[in-house]
Amino acid sequence: MVLYLLLMLFLPILTLFATGFSLPPDRFWSIATSNLAWATYGITISLALGSAVCNGVFGTLVAWVLVRYDFPGKKLIDASIDIPFALPTAVAGVVLTTVYSENGILGRLFAPGSPLGSLWGEEGLRLAFARPGVFIAMTFVSLPFVIRTVQPVLEDMEKEVEEAAWCLGASPATTFWYVIFPPLIPSILTGVALAFSRAVGEFGSVVIIAANLPFDDMVSSVLIFQRLEQFDYPGATVIGIMMLFLSVALLFVINLLQNWSSKSG
């Protein structure tokens, strides 16, 4: 078992570092901080952060609706939340591109000349094959995280506390912000961090929905892939190490958040 883990997990990670750090430091540094690399970090991190926050807001809302309200089809909808985890990313890319491209059902709403599209100027708003498409793909693949971390906390929350707040004369808004929301914060943040971590590394759906233009909508994982295709191993390795650092740092943050939420929950 130790050998299996060693061979399958440790050794590949070790090789990545060994290869990266066998480069001269100034070469490593110049690849890691090249203009194109900086551009992809910026695009990746800003879009992933945006999608994680979007999932934080809507995920909390969906969790709330699923726990507190009753409506027909609720069970089915609850089960369908896991679809983004079960659906292969290539399929996600294909279906999202279909829906959000200029001729797609939802993409059409923002096409040039349409009422919503006109808000963005004459060109309309391009969703697929541009940054918004990447944002949509990232939001899709990380959608279940916040919902699934918030749901159990909401379920365990005692209704008596809320009722007590009401009896003491608090308005619904006050009850929400001062009584319901604070205990949810650790679980929301855990979910957002998990979603962010997933979105940063996402490749399959993003590469399909994006135009993958450098400095425009190319993310870091696509840059690594393109460098590998050109057999530029040092170039790919350095960016790979930067991404790995980010995932390990995020894993650390997520562990801290999970400890916090299990303590407060």
Partner: peptide
């Protein structure tokens, strides 16, 4: 902790590691 890494590493980075090894 390392057991959880495959969940958080980008699949492309996984591919890269294996190509290097």
């Amino acid at each position: 902790t390392i057991l959880d890494l495959p969940f958080s590493i980008s699949p492309v980075v996984v591919g890269l590691m294996l190509v290097l090894l």
